[in-house]
Deep mutational scan, measured.
Amino acid sequence: HSLRVHINGKDFEVHNADEHVIRALEELIRRGADADELKEFLERWKG
């Protein structure tokens, strides 16, 4: 899957995101994670 996440006016393109990554991202958003947390998660995932 390809996923586009809009954080703090920046678009993050997440390519080849598997279900696990997408679910983790949705969980963060549901918990009310702020932009920094989401960005950190995506950067860690992209490795």
Score class of each variant (00 low, 15 high):
30 R>K: 11
2 S>N: 15
6 H>I: 11
33 A>C: 06
39 K>E: 14
11 D>F: 13
1 H>T: 15
13 E>N: 03
12 F>R: 00
46 K>R: 09
40 E>I: 13
37 E>A: 12
20 H>A: 12
3 L>P: 03
7 I>L: 07
23 R>N: 08
31 R>Y: 09
26 E>K: 15
3 L>N: 06
37 E>D: 13
7 I>S: 01
19 E>D: 08
22 I>N: 01
18 D>C: 05
1 H>E: 15
16 N>M: 06
14 V>C: 02
26 E>L: 15
46 K>G: 13
42 L>G: 01
4 R>V: 15
38 L>C: 02
21 V>H: 03
47 G>N: 12
5 V>K: 00
33 A>W: 10
40 E>S: 12
10 K>S: 06
19 E>M: 11
8 N>R: 04
21 V>A: 07
20 H>C: 06
2 S>T: 15
33 A>L: 07
44 R>H: 10
46 K>T: 13
30 R>A: 12
11 D>V: 15
14 V>R: 00
10 K>H: 07
38 L>T: 02
13 E>C: 14
47 G>Y: 13
28 L>W: 10
2 S>D: 11
40 E>P: 02
44 R>D: 06
4 R>F: 08
14 V>H: 02
35 A>K: 04
2 S>K: 13
31 R>I: 08
39 K>V: 14
6 H>W: 07
35 A>W: 13
34 D>V: 05
43 E>C: 12
4 R>T: 15
3 L>K: 04
40 E>K: 13
15 H>C: 03
11 D>K: 09
41 F>Q: 04
46 K>N: 14
33 A>K: 05
19 E>G: 07
44 R>E: 05
16 N>H: 10
6 H>E: 06
11 D>L: 15
15 H>E: 08
14 V>A: 02
24 A>N: 06
45 W>V: 04
11 D>H: 13
27 E>S: 12
38 L>R: 00
44 R>V: 12
6 H>L: 06
12 F>S: 00
7 I>W: 04
28 L>P: 00
28 L>S: 01
27 E>G: 09
9 G>W: 01
24 A>M: 11
14 V>K: 00
23 R>L: 10
34 D>M: 07
43 E>R: 15
19 E>P: 08
20 H>D: 10
8 N>A: 07
32 G>Y: 05
36 D>T: 09
36 D>E: 11
7 I>E: 00
45 W>A: 02
12 F>Q: 01
17 A>F: 03
14 V>I: 13
36 D>Y: 10
32 G>L: 04
16 N>G: 08
46 K>Q: 12
7 I>A: 02
7 I>M: 04
47 G>H: 12
34 D>H: 09
15 H>L: 08
27 E>F: 13
24 A>K: 10
43 E>T: 11
43 E>Y: 14
45 W>P: 02
43 E>D: 10
31 R>G: 09
42 L>M: 11
24 A>E: 11
23 R>P: 02
45 W>L: 06
13 E>P: 02
39 K>L: 15
23 R>H: 10
21 V>C: 03
6 H>M: 08
2 S>Y: 14
45 W>S: 03
26 E>W: 15
6 H>F: 07
31 R>W: 10
6 H>Q: 09
5 V>R: 01
40 E>C: 07
16 N>Q: 06
40 E>G: 11
43 E>A: 15
28 L>N: 01
28 L>A: 05
10 K>W: 05
32 G>K: 05
31 R>M: 10
18 D>E: 10
12 F>E: 02
45 W>K: 02
17 A>K: 04
4 R>N: 14
17 A>P: 07
14 V>P: 00
38 L>S: 00
15 H>I: 10
22 I>D: 00
47 G>T: 09
3 L>M: 13
47 G>E: 12
26 E>C: 14
28 L>F: 09
1 H>Y: 02
31 R>V: 07
24 A>Y: 08
41 F>P: 00
20 H>R: 12
13 E>Q: 06
12 F>D: 00
42 L>R: 01
27 E>H: 10
32 G>A: 05
35 A>P: 08
9 G>A: 01
15 H>T: 10
28 L>T: 01
42 L>A: 04
45 W>E: 02
22 I>S: 02
7 I>Y: 06
30 R>N: 09
34 D>R: 06
14 V>T: 02
20 H>Y: 14
3 L>G: 04
8 N>D: 10
37 E>H: 07
17 A>W: 03
1 H>G: 15
27 E>A: 14
41 F>H: 04
41 F>T: 05
25 L>V: 07
34 D>Y: 05
36 D>V: 08
30 R>E: 06
27 E>V: 12
32 G>P: 02
39 K>Q: 12
25 L>Q: 00
41 F>Y: 08
46 K>P: 10
29 I>F: 11
39 K>T: 14
6 H>C: 04
11 D>T: 15
13 E>Y: 14
21 V>L: 15
40 E>W: 12
4 R>D: 06
5 V>C: 04
42 L>D: 00
12 F>L: 03
13 E>F: 12
43 E>M: 15
35 A>E: 11
43 E>N: 12
